[in-house]
């Protein structure tokens, strides 16, 4: 029976690692998405340039390659990251780059009349963004953002390639040691499903809060 509890611990331990990577990388992704997404709505080429290159780089290469780079190649130029830090930075930058487009699109989708009304009320550019454009864009961002957080969760097994003992890796280890393929695979199936359900639930709650007033009628109101 002690062996069973050992295996249960491995699964729990792996789950905890997966949760940690998902949560921290999601925070990184949100920061990346917001910074690059907002910057890319600028009318100034030089402000758009850096973020655009960053986003295209991370969307144009695979997450797998990026993890290898962050963990095995960066030390050659003097940057050594722990596996955890490399994992959250790469997953965050990768998913954040997709999120960047979500942010940019949502901001661009706020009707022009909203900006004009806030100009007419003499809001500064920052006030327009903070009080008028962003709260409305956020509502449009949340559903695709929820999908991206779930995508991020599903990318976490890749981090075992740079020595993270996440849920998938540990479950495979349990499978090898016990030989019970079905139970190990069923465990990860249920595990990821529960975690992604939790994300969907949380996003749903935030969505309901953020969309007060916006549920009915056209957005232009």
């Amino acid at each position: 029976m002690s062996q069973f509890s050992d295996y249960a611990w491995m699964i729990l331990d792996g789950t905890w690692v997966t949760v940690k990577i998902t949560v921290v990388a999601s925070v990184v992704a949100v920061i990346v998405a917001l910074l690059t997404g907002v910057a890319r709505t600028s009318k100034f080429f030089w402000i758009r340039l850096g973020p655009t290159l960053f986003v295209e780089l991370f969307r144009g290469t695979s997450c797998y390659v990026q993890l290898f780079w962050a963990f095995f190649a960066l030390p050659f130029i003097g940057i050594s990251l722990t596996p955890f830090v490399a994992s959250v930075l790469v997953l965050g930058a990768n998913v954040g780059s997709y999120g960047s487009e979500v942010v940019r699109g949502a901001i661009a989708g706020v009707p022009r009349g909203q900006t004009e009304a806030s100009v007419a009320l003499n809001f500064t550019k920052l006030q327009r963004f903070r009080h008028v454009v962003f709260p409305q864009a956020l509502v449009a961002m949340l559903p695709p953002a929820g999908n991206l957080f779930i995508d991020l969760l599903k990318l976490t097994p890749l981090t075992s390639l740079i020595t993270m003992s996440d849920l998938t890796y540990n479950a495979m280890a349990v499978r090898q040691q016990t030989g019970s393929t079905f139970i190990a695979l069923a465990t990860i199936l249920v595990g990821y499903f529960l975690m992604s359900s939790a994300i969907a639930w949380a996003i749903g709650r935030i969505e309901r809060r953020a969309s007060r007033g916006l549920e009915t009628g056209p957005r232009a109101a």
Binding site: Q114, A120, L214, A221
Partner: peptide
């Protein structure tokens, strides 16, 4: 702009407020 206010054809109220 503080001297001037405007009312628009399509209202442009802030829907989230």
């Amino acid at each position: 702009r503080r001297h001037i206010g405007m009312v628009f054809q399509h209202f442009n109220l802030f829907p989230h407020m």
